[in-house]
Amino acid sequence: MVQYIAPLDLSFAALSDPTRRGVLEQLGRSDASITDLAERFHMTLTGMKKHVSVLEAAGLVVTKKVGRVRTCRLGRRKMAEEAAWIEQYQQLWTARFEALDEIVEELKQRELNNEPDPK
């Protein structure tokens, strides 16, 4: 059976690891070789290559090999789909918390006015 993995899944899987998020943060400041990244994150070269491969598969990082050096830079992907997904849930939770705040305020007012609970 062929399994389709959506770009959203690849992005969130890539972002789920703190080392990969750190790599993205570092590459946001400047391009770096895999060797430099491995040293900076106190990892083996093989371990860093695996992290970079995950980021590359998600389109978040692009690599270029010149001679023996593989340089990494941020990809051009803007993550609009991921931001839209997050925004949808942020709006949902904001609405729920606002409703909860209203209930809490109502209960506080009843307590201040010594009103009985309507239950």
Rank of each mutant, 00 (worst) to 15 (best):
46 T>C: 00
96 R>W: 06
1 M>L: 12
110 R>L: 04
63 T>Y: 02
18 P>I: 08
78 K>A: 08
15 L>H: 02
118 P>C: 05
86 I>W: 07
78 K>F: 00
69 V>K: 14
40 R>V: 06
117 D>W: 05
96 R>D: 11
17 D>K: 10
45 L>G: 08
18 P>Y: 01
66 V>K: 14
60 L>D: 01
4 Y>D: 13
17 D>L: 03
22 G>F: 06
61 V>H: 06
66 V>S: 14
49 K>P: 00
33 S>R: 05
99 A>G: 13
69 V>H: 03
83 A>G: 00
7 P>S: 10
77 R>H: 12
85 W>F: 15
42 H>W: 04
74 L>T: 03
42 H>V: 11
94 T>Q: 14
54 V>Y: 04
42 H>K: 14
93 W>Q: 06
12 F>W: 14
51 H>D: 14
48 M>P: 03
53 S>Y: 06
52 V>K: 04
113 N>A: 15
11 S>T: 14
59 G>W: 02
6 A>N: 08
79 M>L: 15
67 G>L: 06
26 Q>N: 00
14 A>C: 08
12 F>P: 05
32 A>I: 05
83 A>C: 02
11 S>Y: 05
73 R>V: 07
36 D>P: 00
17 D>A: 09
75 G>S: 08
72 C>D: 09
34 I>P: 02
25 E>S: 13
8 L>K: 06
88 Q>Y: 01
9 D>V: 10
66 V>P: 00
20 R>A: 02
119 K>S: 14
117 D>N: 11
107 L>I: 07
82 E>D: 09
50 K>E: 11
34 I>Y: 04
67 G>K: 13
106 E>Y: 09
106 E>R: 12
84 A>P: 04
89 Y>H: 15
19 T>M: 06
119 K>I: 15
54 V>A: 12
85 W>G: 00
119 K>Y: 07
66 V>N: 11
118 P>S: 03
91 Q>K: 15
51 H>N: 15
87 E>C: 05
80 A>L: 12
53 S>D: 15
24 L>W: 03
117 D>I: 14
83 A>R: 13
92 L>I: 13
11 S>F: 03
33 S>T: 13
102 E>F: 03
79 M>N: 11
11 S>G: 03
86 I>V: 15
73 R>G: 15
10 L>Q: 13
34 I>T: 12
20 R>M: 03
60 L>V: 02
99 A>Y: 01
80 A>W: 00
96 R>N: 09
69 V>W: 01
17 D>W: 09
94 T>E: 10
69 V>A: 08
36 D>H: 08
67 G>P: 05
112 L>T: 10
8 L>A: 11
116 P>I: 06
64 K>W: 01
89 Y>K: 12
39 E>Q: 12
27 L>G: 08
82 E>Y: 06
96 R>K: 15
84 A>T: 11
77 R>K: 14
103 I>V: 14
91 Q>V: 02
75 G>R: 03
40 R>Q: 15
2 V>G: 01
114 N>G: 05
66 V>G: 07
53 S>N: 12
39 E>I: 01
96 R>M: 12
113 N>I: 00
17 D>C: 11
38 A>C: 09
84 A>C: 01
89 Y>I: 05
